[in-house]
């Protein structure tokens, strides 16, 4: 395997609320290979957005890195000075937010905003910036005559393309995209996802795609990292993780998702709700909702173990994953947690 572009080692992030620390991300470890799309999946509050934002070091004022490192191209992002980090942003690591409206300034044309990044951050001359801006618009499928338009003159899908063009401006190696298609209609969503795949293939860019939608993961990702209540519970190649999940949470997510390509089947919810991270349960945090939980699950925290090659899961019953998968398919299994 080639050298990873990014390696997270035991990364923890805490929020200070009142006089108490709440650990939003705890001991996250995974790799991002060059030229790959990694899906970071989980429900609201699982820490996926906090984790993604920490990689650009843009965190809320009450958040801090509580431990671990994130090695990007040989440097620990978390240990860089603010100045060094500033040098990395846009040039090496770029960010696409959920709503592009939040990243675009309504009073400047999109061309002006692109030029600003290219000239001030990229050191390009005015005419070189103009050429580059046109090239970027062509890449993301917007007509170049729209460079003179203001953000409000674009539809939601087109604005998201503008945000992608901005992120690509200085040829970054890694793009962090936080739910980039969640607010969009299915057709536009598909076109944006196709765009991301194409950029990966043509430019060799890596993408960390934060999403709650495993269909989106199935469509574009090479690998997947599943988070639950602040911890990574499963990670592996996309196809293996979705077809043969080793963690009961991932198994449950699969049952809860409608699938247009199969016969109309029953959807099964995962009963209960994720724990309050201010006072998480001991042991495995999924145990209170897990139909397969045993006594040790409620006391001992399971580590991320090898399930098969580079497919890992944090479950005490990982050795029985195949049996559990077979049981997880039946909706009765999920009715009353053990």
């Amino acid at each position: 395997m080639t050298q990873p572009l990014l390696t997270l080692k035991d990364l923890s992030i805490a929020y200070r609320v009142g006089d108490q620390d709440t650990i939003a991300v705890e001991g996250a470890s995974f790799d991002v290979q060059p030229g790959s799309i990694v899906g970071l999946v989980g429900e609201s509050g699982c820490g996926k957005t906090t984790l993604a934002r920490s990689l650009t070091r843009v965190l809320a004022g009450n958040a801090r890195i509580a431990g671990g490192e994130a090695i990007f191209d040989g440097r620990d992002i978390m240990a860089l000075s603010e100045r060094a980090m500033n040098g990395l942003r846009w040039r090496e690591i770029a960010f696409i937010p959920q709503s592009a409206m939040n990243s675009l300034d309504p009073v400047y044309t999109v061309g002006t905003q692109l030029a600003e990044v290219l000239i001030r951050r990229g050191g390009l001359g005015r005419s070189a910036a103009r050429t580059r801006a046109e090239e970027l618009f062509e890449w993301v499928g917007i007509e170049t005559n729209r460079l003179g338009d203001y953000p409000h003159q674009f539809s939601g899908g087109m604005r998201q393309r503008v945000a992608i063009a901005l992120a690509l401006a200085l040829d970054p190696k890694l793009i962090i995209a936080d739910e980039p298609v969640t607010a969009l209609d299915v057709i536009v969503q598909r076109q944006i996802l196709d765009q991301l795949r194409e950029l990966k293939e043509r430019l060799g860019i890596s993408v960390i795609l934060v999403t709650h939608d495993i269909s989106v993961v199935a469509y574009v990702c090479d690998r997947v990292v599943v988070m639950y209540a602040g911890r990574v519970v499963e990670t592996g190649p996309m196809a293996a993780t979705l077809t043969a999940p080793a963690h009961p949470y991932t198994m449950g997510l699969r049952n809860a998702f409608p699938d247009l390509a199969s016969a109309a089947g029953e959807l099964t919810p995962i009963e209960g709700a994720p724990p309050d991270l201010a006072s998480p349960p001991p042991g495995c945090r999924f145990a209170p909702r897990c139909p397969f939980a045993e006594a040790r699950c409620r006391t001992d925290v399971p580590g991320l173990d090898i399930y098969d090659g580079d497919h890992l899961a944090a479950c005490h019953r990982i050795a029985e994953a195949e049996t559990l998968r077979a049981r997880a398919v039946a909706s009765e299994t999920w009715e009353a947690p053990a």
């Binding site: 899908g157 057709i187 196709d194 989106v216 199935a218 469509y219 979705l242 247009l260």
Partner: peptide, 25 residues
């Protein structure tokens, strides 16, 4: 037809063929 083709499905084997619809909202 385009709408049905655009719905992503939660498993790995699926078509990545271009949608039969023009761009532009």
């Amino acid at each position: 037809q385009a709408l049905v083709a655009a719905v992503p499905v939660p498993h790995p084997d699926q078509s990545h063929a271009p949608l039969p619809i023009g761009r532009g909202a």
